[in-house]
């Protein structure tokens, strides 16, 4: 199973994107998306922002669960208080793990935001952040 994570800023700009696979069921953590899916994945997430905005306006929860689907792929989303969208493209429905994963990613994001050298909507390029996201993925997905 493969995942595509994107943290999207307030102007539809990607702050951080990462592709990874599962470690469960003997997976090695590498994504197995087909080449077609790879080049399409950012567009699917971008299109799902429509649904994220719609769902977010109807609930007071930050975790929006699965907001959209595209053929066999699902899109889950989490919206922070600052309207930053954390979105995940995945293949199987797994709400609880994804909720925990999003929660931790949110924590990481907030910690990044606390840095005086980081501004809202700025891309995150820190290798440490990368490392932590990967270990979170290993833990939950």
């Amino acid at each position: 199973m493969s995942y595509y994570l994107a943290i999207v800023g307030t102007e539809d700009n990607p702050i951080y994107t990462q592709e990874f696979g599962t470690y469960r069921q003997g997976g090695d953590g590498n994504s197995r998306f087909s080449p077609e899916m790879k080049e399409l994945a950012p567009f699917i997430l971008h299109a799902a922002i429509d649904m994220v905005e719609q769902t977010a306006s109807r609930t007071n929860q930050l975790y929006l669960r699965t907001v959209d689907n595209f053929y066999s792929h699902l899109v889950s989303a989490f919206v922070t208080a600052g309207d930053i969208k954390i979105m995940l493209l995945h293949e199987t429905r797994n709400e609880e793990s994804i909720r925990q994963f999003f929660q931790e990613v949110h924590d990481l994001y907030v910690k990044t935001l606390l840095s005086p050298f980081y501004f809202v909507n700025q891309p995150i390029t820190s290798p440490v952040f990368d490392q932590r996201i990967k270990s979170l993925a290993k833990k939950y997905l």
């Binding site: 539809d12 399409l40 922002i49 429509d50």
Partner: peptide, 17 residues
């Protein structure tokens, strides 16, 4: 069909497809 809603992101995706 998607283009009738105000944000055109989905419409753009399907144009691309």
């Amino acid at each position: 069909a998607f283009s009738q809603s105000p944000k055109g992101r989905k419409a753009a995706l399907w144009q691309l497809l």
